[in-house]
Amino acid sequence: MEDLLRPLYQERTSQQNTLGVLVAERIEQNNAFTENFDSILLIIVHEAEEAVFTKHYVDCNEKTASMYIVTENQLKEWLLLGTNRKVIEWLYHGRILFDRNEYVHELKIEMREFPFYGRKIKMTIEFAKLIKRYTDGKAFFKDGHYLDAYNHVMHSLHHLARLSIIENGYYPELTVWNQVHHIEPEIYKLYEELLTSDEDLKKRLELLFLASEFLIHSRTEKGADHLLFLMKEKEWWSINELLNHREVMHYSVDLVTLMEYLIERQLVRVVSVQTKGQGVFHRYYQLHKES
């Protein structure tokens, strides 16, 4: 396999733009790890015309390889938002073939140590997704749309699992339920019961909403800490100011639902300010003093 890979990356190692090269190889029990290719070649560059460039190769022995050239900015965005977990897995588990000024080595150390601020923003991203899915699931359940409720609940449990993993200082892997099984068996048990219980769907959902309520509520302050901390910057905020904050923008799509949940939990309060129209008020948001 090395004979196939070496010509693909060797020329690039002499270019100052290339920061690192890694290879991730097929795992027999998990072909999905390398997208069913024998090898993944991950090349990290400082900048490029395309943030991600991909090519596929095969040699005379039918060995296959997929090459990804990824810019530093794109990789950091994925690491922050967790939106391309396969690449994060390749970076975490991949073998270093070239490393300029120990760039990849330091990146791997950072992933293992998982800096506290990185955890905070990732936890709030996951918590916002969790609250959106959970809230929508309950609404579908109330309206009798049980299959739609089931779909949203499954997603909410997945975000709860990822939140738990991040809270414990780890990066969520592709096999997230295997991680959770060891880190927080209680969440794994909820997932297992939703899938395998003999109860009818309505009853399964009822039981899950009851059981997961505490697990979600008990994580509210930690889960929303990134947003609550940022809100200390001003006395009160309009929703537009929050939506356009450079860090809040990472979870802005779920922000409105999250804000309503935080109001319900009495961590955020609504401030009404008179508009020019009689009896119409602007709605602003501020932290409860004890927050």
Score class of each variant (00 low, 15 high):
Lys122Trp: 03
Lys122Asp: 06
Met123Val: 07
Thr124Asn: 13
Thr124Gln: 06
Ile125Gln: 05
Glu126Gly: 07
Phe127Pro: 05
Ala128Ser: 04
Ala128Glu: 02
Lys129His: 04
Leu130Val: 06
Ile131Arg: 00
Ile131His: 07
Lys132Ser: 05
Arg133Cys: 08
Arg133Gln: 11
Tyr134Leu: 13
Tyr134Val: 03
Tyr134Thr: 03
Tyr134Lys: 03
Asp136Phe: 07
Gly137Arg: 00
Lys138Phe: 10
Lys138Pro: 02
Lys138Asp: 08
Phe140Pro: 04
Lys142Leu: 13
Asp143Arg: 14
Gly144Phe: 03
Gly144Cys: 03
Gly144Trp: 06
Tyr146Glu: 07
Asp148Lys: 07
Asp148Cys: 04
Asp148Tyr: 10
Ala149Ser: 01
Asn151Cys: 08
Asn151Ile: 02
Asn151Leu: 09
Val153Trp: 00
Val153Arg: 01
Met154Asn: 14
Met154Tyr: 11
Met154Asp: 10
His155Ile: 13
His155Gly: 12
His155Lys: 14
Ser156Asp: 01
Leu157Gly: 06
Leu157Phe: 04
His158Glu: 15
Leu160Lys: 00
Ala161Asn: 06
Ala161Leu: 05
Leu163Arg: 09
Leu163Gln: 13
Ser164Ala: 14
Ser164Glu: 13
Ile165Tyr: 11
Ile166Tyr: 02
Asn168Ser: 13
Gly169Phe: 11
Gly169Lys: 14
Tyr171Phe: 11
Pro172Asn: 15
Thr175Leu: 14
Val176Phe: 12
Trp177Glu: 10
Gln179Ser: 13
Gln179Glu: 15
Gln179Ile: 09
Val180Glu: 13
Val180Phe: 07
His181Phe: 10
Ile183Tyr: 13
Ile187Arg: 05
Ile187Pro: 05
Lys189Asp: 15
Tyr191Leu: 07
Tyr191Thr: 03
Leu194Gln: 09
Leu194Tyr: 02
Thr196Met: 08
Thr196Tyr: 12
Ser197Thr: 05
Asp198Pro: 08
Asp198Ile: 08
Glu199Trp: 06
Glu199Gln: 03
Asp200Glu: 10
Leu201Pro: 01
Lys202Arg: 08
Lys202Trp: 04
Leu205Thr: 02
Glu206Ile: 09
Leu207Val: 01
Leu207His: 01
Leu208Met: 02
Leu210Trp: 01
Ala211Ile: 00
Ser212His: 00
Ser212Asp: 04
Glu213His: 04
Phe214Thr: 15
Leu215Gly: 09
Ile216Leu: 05
Ile216Met: 09
His217Trp: 11
His217Glu: 14
Ser218Asn: 14
Ser218Cys: 13
Thr220Gln: 07
Thr220Tyr: 10
Glu221Met: 08
Lys222His: 07
Lys222Arg: 10
